[in-house]
């Protein structure tokens, strides 16, 4: 935890009094949170508690009704959805989203294409746009997610869990400062979940800030440094994962049934 503690005073992402309303529905309301550098944050909450809307707002796909989002201390809510990659924010999606007709390598390269400061920058404009090379970032992302051997596969040939890893690899190839993971282990078996948890913690120790939306409480407890519990569009509890899952309010809102299973 030393890396996390040393940098605990520097917020990477700060959300102040955020509200996202759809007509009369307050999907997110009066929500504030602060993500410090080099830690893994988790968001738990029942379906419809506003987790996806929050992620949508942070990735700039959903317009804010009011409130502020700051990234690196700078106002973030004027940034267009297609510019968040340039700010080195990477994300994965709730349902796997890969290009169906291209290989795993090219899917991951799509993330590296967005990266700045890559060796690609030194190439000429022509080679960068029309060259058929593969970036070094792709090879390292493949190695980290243990996708070696799958390079030429297309998504439909692989299991759901493997497809999820390709998504994570694509996000890593972007060389992110903040990684947003939307249910990254859904559809994975126990062994794969463990592997992902280990990978995320390794990345954390290298200083990568992560925000994880997850249903699997055990995964959250194993992986996250800090957890926000959401219900009805706002944060109802936050703190160390072990403490949050024991919070009576949280248990009532979300874990009531599930916690006894866990």
């Amino acid at each position: 935890m030393s890396a996390a503690e040393a940098t605990a005073t520097r917020p990477v992402l700060e959300i102040r009094d955020l509200a996202v309303h759809f007509g009369g529905v307050k999907a997110v309301d009066r929500l504030s949170m602060r993500l410090d550098e080099g830690r893994i944050y988790g968001i738990i909450g029942p379906n419809g508690s506003g987790k996806s809307t929050l992620l949508g707002a942070v990735t700039r796909l959903t317009p804010l009704t009011s409130g502020e989002i700051l990234f690196d201390g700078e106002p973030f809510h004027t940034v267009h959805a297609s510019q968040i990659a340039a700010k080195r924010i990477a994300r994965t999606f709730q349902t796997v989203r890969l290009l169906p007709d291209v290989s795993v390598r090219d899917n991951i390269q799509l993330g590296a294409d967005a990266a700045r400061g890559d060796v690609d920058e030194r190439r000429g404009w022509w080679a960068r746009n029309f060259g058929t090379h593969t970036s070094p970032a792709v090879a390292s992302a493949i190695a980290r997610t243990r996708l070696g051997g799958f390079e030429d596969y297309r998504p439909a040939e692989m299991s759901y869990g493997t497809q999820r890893r390709v998504e994570i690899a694509r996000a890593l190839a972007l060389d992110p400062r903040l990684l947003l993971l939307d249910e990254p282990t859904a559809g994975m078996n126990q062994r794969e979940r463990g592997e992902i948890s280990t990978l995320l913690k390794e990345l954390r120790d290298e200083g990568l800030t992560q925000l994880l939306v997850e249903h699997d409480v055990q995964m959250m407890v194993d992986t996250c440094d800090y957890v926000f519990a959401m219900n009805l569009g706002t944060v109802i509890a936050q703190g160390r994962p072990e403490d949050v899952v024991r919070d009576p309010q949280v248990q009532e809102a979300y874990l009531g049934k599930k916690f006894r299973h866990a």
Partner: peptide, 8 residues
């Protein structure tokens, strides 16, 4: 949507 998330 994916395209936007990778900076396109």
């Amino acid at each position: 949507e994916l395209a936007q998330s990778v900076g396109i």
